[in-house]
Simulated assay, not measured.
Amino acid sequence: MDAGAALVTPADTTYAVEPSAGTVRWKKPDFRAVTLTDGVVAGGERTGFGAGRLLGLAAATGEQRWTVAEARQAGRRRAPAAERDPQGQDLRRGCRHR
């Protein structure tokens, strides 16, 4: 809860709810809030199949404050640039490493 709003994240949509009035201030589909600090809601946004980014939203308005593109799941290593095609796809998939 921050600035009088409560954050609720059922499934993959985050809602900022005004508890006293029972109204929704804002909602963000495909966004899962993880933390709320200093008026900024931080979490992960799904941007496509298996793709996402870290995102910071203003708790009061839902306005975007910052983003980290190409956020990846923990433990997944991205291929170095020399091992990716121009679209960023890993060229090593399907290849045997010795």
Rank of each mutant, 00 (worst) to 15 (best):
G48Y: 05
A60F: 07
L54W: 14
P80W: 12
G94F: 06
A81F: 15
A33V: 03
D38G: 12
K27M: 03
T37G: 05
L36R: 11
E83D: 10
V17S: 02
L55S: 06
W26C: 02
C95S: 14
E70V: 10
A51H: 15
G22S: 08
L55G: 04
E83S: 10
R77H: 12
T13L: 00
T14F: 09
G22W: 00
F31K: 07
R93A: 07
Q89A: 14
Q73V: 13
L36M: 05
K28I: 07
R76C: 12
D12K: 06
E70H: 09
E45Y: 11
V8R: 12
R65P: 03
G44M: 06
R84M: 06
G94E: 01
V41S: 01
W26Y: 07
Q73I: 07
G52M: 06
V40I: 14
W66N: 09
R25P: 02
D30S: 08
K27G: 00
R78T: 09
G88N: 05
R53D: 01
G50V: 05
L91A: 03
Q73K: 13
R84G: 03
A5D: 03
G56Y: 05
G50L: 12
R78C: 01
T67M: 14
G43W: 06
Q64F: 15
T67K: 14
R72K: 11
A69G: 11
H97P: 05
T35H: 11
G52Q: 07
V34M: 05
A6I: 00
V41R: 03
G52D: 13
D12T: 11
Q87H: 12
D38T: 07
T67D: 09
M1R: 12
G94Q: 00
A51N: 14
T23N: 04
D90R: 04
M1H: 14
E70F: 13
G4K: 04
A81P: 05
Q73C: 10
T47I: 06
V40G: 04
A82I: 04
V68F: 04
A60P: 08
A5C: 11
D38L: 13
D38N: 15
M1Y: 15
L91E: 11
H97F: 12
R76D: 10
G43V: 09
P10T: 02
G52P: 09
G22E: 01
A74W: 06
V41L: 03
A11Y: 10
R72I: 10
A33S: 02
A6P: 00
A71L: 09
Q87Y: 13
E83M: 11
A60L: 06
W26M: 10
D12Y: 15
G62M: 01
A33L: 03
G22Y: 02
